[in-house]
Nucleic acid binder design. Structure first.
Ligand code: SF4
Ligand code: SF4
Lengths: 137, 137
DNA sequence: CTTAATAGGGTTAAAATAGTCCTATTTAAC
DNA sequence: GTTAAATAGGACTATTTTAACCCTATTAAG
């Protein structure tokens, strides 16, 4: 269906939330989930992925939470997608060749791979900074 | 995971198969499935979708099968995707607004929709004709 | 030492995708 | 006209992926 995962949307919303509500401020998952309207548990998983990628930074313990890990000019939508969904692969042979029974005789991979790179370029072209400008402006 | 459906790949392979093996020739699903290396039953479903969209034409009865329904200069990858997967929607609110609990407060739709249009433009930019030239050349 | 938070493994539930099966219809060939 | 080879398509099942939840451990403020 060529659809973006829900977790990615959770992550994207979370990052823009962090970016708008105080740049250095530490925000709990609970606050974000309540404000945005998402499931706290699931958003928590998304935040953990973002943290591992350095997009968010975490503070543990009471008064803990998350804040941005990078300047919003340096985080692209592609980064968030990578952090949450892992390396993109439009076709199953991108995961592993033997996942496709016709791998050795397929003549379409080249095209599909360039297509993928173009899509990736689109995602890379948008930083969170420019996304916010687009939303507000 | 942003992955293309298997049925779409079946369809794409089938169309290029029809295009290379004789333009007017009527080819059975069995032949295509055997040659390409796909499941006959499932490929059959893909062909039915392509037929409904006019991309393939069918001949029923003994000696029946499929042939191309349009000139390969007039069929784009986007057409095949549309025929097989239906209207694209990168996010669930594209199917129906109430599929997302935060629809009314979401500020990301605009961006995601332009992203979708750009991806769609990429698919529309490749006709089967140009795809074949790319493969052969 | 208690409490509020993240970290993360493991499990379950729901949905989408992939594939199969079966029957009806069409039509060429005999 | 009967048979056989094909598409048409509905219904079903299996598999895989996604989404969500639960539970325990760890961290650190008060
Ligand atoms: S059909 Fe080709 S592009 Fe698609 S998964 Fe198989 S090898 Fe890859
Ligand atoms: S979060 Fe926004 S873009 Fe995503 S499905 Fe909901 S309304 Fe649509």
């Amino acid at each position: 269906m060529l659809q973006v995962s829900r977790k990615f949307e959770y992550g994207l919303h979370a990052v823009t939330y962090l970016a708008t509500k105080g740049l250095g401020r530490v925000v709990t998952v609970k606050e974000m989930a309540d404000e945005i309207g998402f499931s706290q548990e699931f958003l928590s998983k998304a935040m953990q992925s973002l943290k591992r990628a350095g997009i968010a930074a975490s503070v543990q313990g009471v008064k803990g939470g998350y804040r941005l890990g990078k300047a919003i000019e340096e985080v692209t939508v592609a980064d968030i997608a990578l952090a949450i969904e892992g390396k993109p692969h439009l076709v199953r042979c991108g995961v592993k060749a033997d996942r496709c029974e016709i791998f050795s005789s397929c003549h379409h991979r080249g095209y599909i791979n360039t297509l993928q790179h173009k899509i990736q370029a689109l995602l890379t072209a948008t930083t969170i900074h420019s996304l916010l400008k687009e939303i507000e402006g």
